Simulated assay, not measured.
Amino acid sequence: MRWIRDYQPQPEQGRLYRQALILTLGGNLLLAVGKGLAAYFSGSVALYADAANSVSDVFYSLMMVLGLWVAQRPPDISHPQGHSRFEPLVGISVAFSMGLAGYEAARTALVRFQMGGLAVEAGLPAVVLLISALIKVFMFLRIRTLARSLHSPTLATTAKDNLSDVLTSTAAFVGAFGSSLIHPLTDPIAGFLVAAWIFRAAFLAVRENLGFLTGAGASEEVRQQIAAAAREVPGVQAVHHLMAEYVGPQLVVDLHVNVDTDLPLKDTHAIEDAVVARLEAIPEVDRAYVHIEPVGWQ
């Protein structure tokens, strides 16, 4: 009797995850230190808000290391279907970390706004923010590619956070320049914009990862793709039942297909195996359960 699901280690998948973790942790640590020092010496609240976001990025990077390590563990008797549900849980933790950074950015901007703002010398903040934006553009593009290859909601959330950081660094850049060229209140106003972008990214990340964690269904496009793939298997005459729900970052499919009632048992079993193989070849599908029924059965 089998107690846990079959599992085959995937060394290439592990290598890509390690690459993503190293890039995320290393890049965020570098940016947090650089922005923090620049904010301290320049006094820019917009840059301070951006630095707070980078500090939160360091903490979520550490959570990613632990969470993804757990999510990639093979099935065992405590989790016979595997540990993949831990991954969207990590994604939600990342989103909450982003929310805390947004709160700190908004709080600091409010204090500075009530003080009437402060003119900031644009030189150092401008250089730091431009470099930060370029680094984050690279991180966004690379992490997004890895997220798509691995179908990882945590890495997809991280990529979105990197894109948000590009936009918030741009807002902070405008604030640093505007405080001296336009009005001192430009800097805290930019800080509010930074906070707004962070809150928006956090909300979207929570919404997406909750779907993965709570068993959301597949989109209509994916459902049609699954049904079409099953119908292409020789011997399948109809598909009359399909359930596809997320268990962690990938789908579990329950499918009923109709076959000729006169086929020998070994032939119907071969059709079942062929349908399972065809469905599990779809990138979004983790595993499929196929039930064989006679033609006309609904």
Rank of each mutant, 00 (worst) to 15 (best):
L100R: 11
S164I: 06
L124A: 11
A270N: 11
V239Y: 03
L16A: 08
V120A: 03
L124G: 00
L163I: 10
F192N: 07
V137Y: 07
T154K: 02
A172N: 02
P125Q: 02
L193P: 02
L37D: 00
Q81H: 13
G175F: 01
A38M: 14
A218W: 09
H241L: 12
H256S: 04
H291P: 11
P264D: 08
L130M: 14
I77Y: 09
M64F: 13
D161M: 13
S54C: 04
I143S: 03
V222F: 06
E232L: 13
A201D: 03
M1H: 08
Y60M: 11
T186P: 00
L118A: 13
E12N: 11
P80F: 02
A171L: 06
M139G: 05
T24K: 07
L129G: 03
L31K: 07
R85E: 09
L204I: 11
M98W: 09
V247T: 11
S61A: 15
R107L: 11
I198S: 04
F113C: 08
P234H: 06
I4S: 01
V58F: 02
Y103H: 09
A244C: 10
G43D: 03
H240L: 05
L141C: 09
D260T: 04
L181R: 13
I182E: 00
G67C: 00
G34C: 12
L210Q: 02
G26Q: 08
D286L: 13
Y17E: 12
A147F: 06
P234E: 04
S132R: 04
A71F: 07
D262A: 14
Y60T: 10
D76E: 05
P264E: 07
T24I: 10
G91S: 14
A205Y: 06
Q8N: 09
L150S: 06
A288H: 02
Q10G: 04
E220I: 14
L181S: 02
G211N: 07
I226Y: 06
L193V: 15
V166S: 01
T170K: 04
L66M: 05
